[in-house]
Design a protein around this nucleic acid. Structure first.
Length: 269
DNA sequence: AATAATGATTGATT
DNA sequence: AATCAATCATTATT
């Protein structure tokens, strides 16, 4: 939305501005650095747009771009099916705007160039104009237009960044774990209450059991530890529930992998 | 609508 | 590198 807002009223100004400046002021163009510095910022923008699939192939690169984006995000989101379609929709929207705007610029640039050429031809009747001068003229025009293009690219990048932070940030689409998953996690936590620090292997097993990632298991235990410690009273009930659970399973002799079910930290009730 | 619960992130610490 | 503590942003509950 922001792109079109910024660019729609730019072209008329550009036309009048450049015409007045370069022709009525006398055609004396001295600053003709032939060097193209290949602006590093422009390179950055181009690379990002390409990586994001905005500037790439028109239709074929959609899934590849999404995969690249997912990979770049760190692979934190395990279930990317429904959320991603929305994201890809918005991205395609941005891409469409970008391409139409870019095409508009291209066309305007060509039109303007031919216009300028005509004017130059007209002037060449009264005054000799070297082809070098014409070339310089065209260069200037193209530079002007490419700077406008860079603005477009920049605002497109901005939009993509906003979109990503809006959709790929896991905080914004948080789902609670399933009841059985929290069941499993709590069972482990309260049966290892004296040392609630699962090893990498244990984490892996828990993750597999709960259908979540290892880092999610780590997050859960981190949160659980700190929140349990913060006020143990609030968790007494829960602790008792899972204590009797493990006690029952211990008496039934399912397996001998658990700590002593008695709470070591002054269990009151 | 207020409030609690909860998963994720961030910066410091060890 | 793992964890703590604080915090954010969403979801569940009252």
């Amino acid at each position: 939305e922001r792109i079109s807002l910024q660019c729609s009223h730019l072209l008329p100004h550009l036309f009048s501005y450049v015409v007045l400046f370069f022709f009525w002021a006398g055609l004396s163009i001295r600053s003709n650095q032939e060097e193209e510095p290949v602006d590093p910022q422009l390179m950055r923008l181009d690379n990002m747009l390409l990586a994001e699939g905005v500037a790439g192939p028109e239709k074929g690169g959609g899934s590849a771009a999404a995969a690249a984006a997912a990979a770049a995000s760190g692979g934190v989101s395990p279930d990317n099916s429904i959320e991603h379609s929305d994201y890809r929709n918005k991205l395609a929207q941005i891409r469409q705007i970008y391409h139409t705007e870019l095409e508009k610029y291209e066309q305007a640039c060509n039109e303007f160039t031919t216009h300028v050429m005509n004017l130059l031809r007209e002037q060449s009747r009264t005054r000799p104009i070297s082809p070098k001068e014409i070339e310089r003229m065209v260069n200037i025009i193209h530079r002007k237009f490419s700077s406008i293009q860079m603005q477009l690219k920049q605002s497109t990048c901005e939009a993509v960044m906003i979109l990503r932070s809006r959709f790929l940030d896991a905080r914004r689409k948080r789902r609670n774990f399933s009841k059985q998953a929290t069941e499993v996690l709590n069972e482990y936590f309260y049966s290892h209450l004296s040392n609630p620090y699962p090893s990498e292997e244990a984490k892996e097993e828990l993750a597999k059991k709960c259908g979540i990632t290892i880092s999610q298991v780590s997050n859960w235990f981190g949160n659980k530890r700190i929140r349990y410690k913060k006020n143990i009273g609030k968790f007494q009930e829960e602790a008792n529930i899972y204590a009797v659970k493990t006690a029952v399973s211990a008496t039934q002799g399912t397996h001998s992998g658990t700590d002593s079910p008695t709470t070591p930290t002054s269990a009151g009730t």
